[in-house]
């Protein structure tokens, strides 16, 4: 891992970017997870629309949870009607439980071409995330990639 932690000003910019996604998409939750610089674990660093502070303590292993899975596969992930229509156990999706989300869409954030982060949006109601919104998230992820590259 070559990137370093963001500065205070950088943190503010990322927070603002998450808030912007939240207001653009009118979703309930936006979160950004990044792989740790000193190991494979993945931690939720930024959130907007969060109902509590649990995300700050959540760390998942590479390949585990939504964030770990998106980083390990490098592909987007869509969860609908959680916890009913999921593969595996509800306990394998900590951020969905922590934020009481029913729908979520997560896309990888690349750093030097390698997936190192995840941008996730989620809804607590029965509102699915349509293709148009998914496309907006992918665009937001590309903008965040540029922002992160310039900050770290």
């Amino acid at each position: 891992m070559e990137y370093k932690e963001c500065s205070q000003a950088g943190n503010g910019q990322i927070d603002q970017a998450c808030e912007k996604v939240l207001s653009e998409l009118e979703c309930d939750f936006v979160g950004l997870a990044l792989q740790n610089t000193d190991g494979p674990d993945v931690r939720w660093h930024y959130a907007a629309g969060n109902s509590n502070e649990k995300y700050k303590r959540i760390t998942v292993r590479y390949g585990k949870g939504i964030a770990g899975k998106v980083i390990s596969t490098g592909r987007p992930m869509y969860l609908e009607n959680f916890p009913e229509d999921i593969s595996g156990k509800a306990l394998e999706y900590p951020i969905m439980l922590a934020e009481s989300l029913n729908f979520a869409y997560a896309v990888p954030i690349h750093f030097k071409g390698i997936p190192k982060g995840v941008l996730l949006i989620g809804n607590r109601t029965g509102q699915p995330i349509n293709e148009g919104e998914q496309s907006t998230v992918r665009s937001a992820a590309r903008r965040l990639e540029e922002k992160l590259s310039s900050l770290i």
Binding site: E53, R57, I58, L97
Partner: peptide, 8 residues
């Protein structure tokens, strides 16, 4: 448990 679910 705390680092997985954020519950202290």
């Amino acid at each position: 448990y705390t680092s997985t679910y954020g519950i202290t």
